[in-house]
């Protein structure tokens, strides 16, 4: 079956629940344009005041890493324990460090 060209595109929706917090992915929806995506997101994802700000991103514009490459992709961070503060030995008695 060929896709109808009048099908509304897919948008991924991110909601900030409170000022000062990050926007978090909540799901997706279809809408003809960005304004409609944001208004639909309000109706779908914030019916109980769950949000303070909404981001809508065309799903086509969202790129992601490949889970099957995860092992090699994240490998460079594997052996660098010295990036964590607990790696270091502090002299006995030193305070506030």
């Amino acid at each position: 079956m060929s896709e109808n060209p009048n099908n509304w595109p897919l948008w991924e929706i991110f909601i900030q629940s409170k000022r000062g917090l990050e926007h978090k992915h909540v799901g997706s929806l279809h809408a003809a344009d960005a304004q409609m995506a944001i208004e639909n997101a309000r109706d779908v994802y914030t019916r109980r005041q769950e949000g303070n700000s909404i981001w809508a991103v065309l799903a086509d514009n969202l790129h992601s890493s490949r889970p099957e490459d995860a092992e090699s992709f994240y490998d460079p961070a594997d052996d660098k324990v010295y990036r964590h503060p607990t790696f270091y030995t502090m002299p006995e008695g030193a305070k506030y460090i």
Binding site: P5, N6, N7, W8, A32, D33, M36
Partner: peptide
């Protein structure tokens, strides 16, 4: 309605 919304979005773009 679905078709009109797409036509309107295209026109605005």
């Amino acid at each position: 309605v679905r078709n009109a919304a797409m036509a309107y979005a295209a026109k605005k773009a």
